[in-house]
Amino acid sequence: MQQLLQQLINGITIGSFYALVALGYTMVYGVLKLINFAHGDLFMWGAYIGLTGLSALVALMSRGGPILILPVSIIVIVTIALVGVLIERVAYRPLRSAGRLAPVISALGAAFILESLARNIYGASWKTYPTGLVPAGRVALVGGVRISVMQVLVLVVSFLLMALLYLFVYRTRIGTAMRAVSLDHEVSRLMGIDVDGIIATVFLIGPGLGGLAGMIVALYYGSFDFTLGWIFGLKAFISAILGGIGNIPGAMLGGMILGIIETLGAGYVSPQWKDVIAYAILILILIFRPTGLLGERVAEKL
């Protein structure tokens, strides 16, 4: 029981990483019906920008401490969000009426460019985050379960961000317009919605969240290299599909489920088998629910 709870906490932590990144895939898919393959690499760039920012700040202040994370987070969010918008503008918008395949290829191209840029600028070696930013201690919870300060930080930040995003998408005028654009571009334009503006907003929010997640993941694991975006990006993409691509609560749920299954598989069977277990379950879910767990909750009839 204690082990199960411990694994669940670890699983939810990993799951919240997947969820934050999955949101970017699912939001872009919602409005453009495009898998933004560059998203994983935007996430990876978040880790690098975070590294540069935190290293510089630690050197400058000659001290660590969690407070340094806040200004760097803002820099990461803003930078990656702007790069996201730039990619949409340069690589996707000109191809808006070119069918489904061309934008996908363009997205893959953007992914390779971002990845190569990271390798060329930062080098191919593993990078290590400055230590001492987050206190290393663990907090004991009921039943002997322990949670690290880092995990508390990760969970608080990601659940807060997800709650804010949910409120934005389901409770505000712009969020509702975003959902309208996901359903029908043409009718949205006839409502007076600036569809290009809404798409740009999605490319601010998705990559912004993804970039921040990149920094948090690197902070959590301590070190990373330029392949981070590929591995995490793929798993987050799978989370989005699992939850029902295009569905925002689905991406959150899918991320959590994948994180938990992986962690339980690693803990109860063996770490070498975690991916086999996780993806076998995933394939089964997709066979029995091809639209994902929350996909198309309402029959779309005309």
Partner: peptide, 16 residues
């Protein structure tokens, strides 16, 4: 908009 409520549909009509 099939997955928006009737009210949300109407609010989109008043978007401008």
């Amino acid at each position: 908009f099939t997955t928006l409520t009737v009210m949300e549909n109407l609010m989109m009509g008043a978007y401008t």
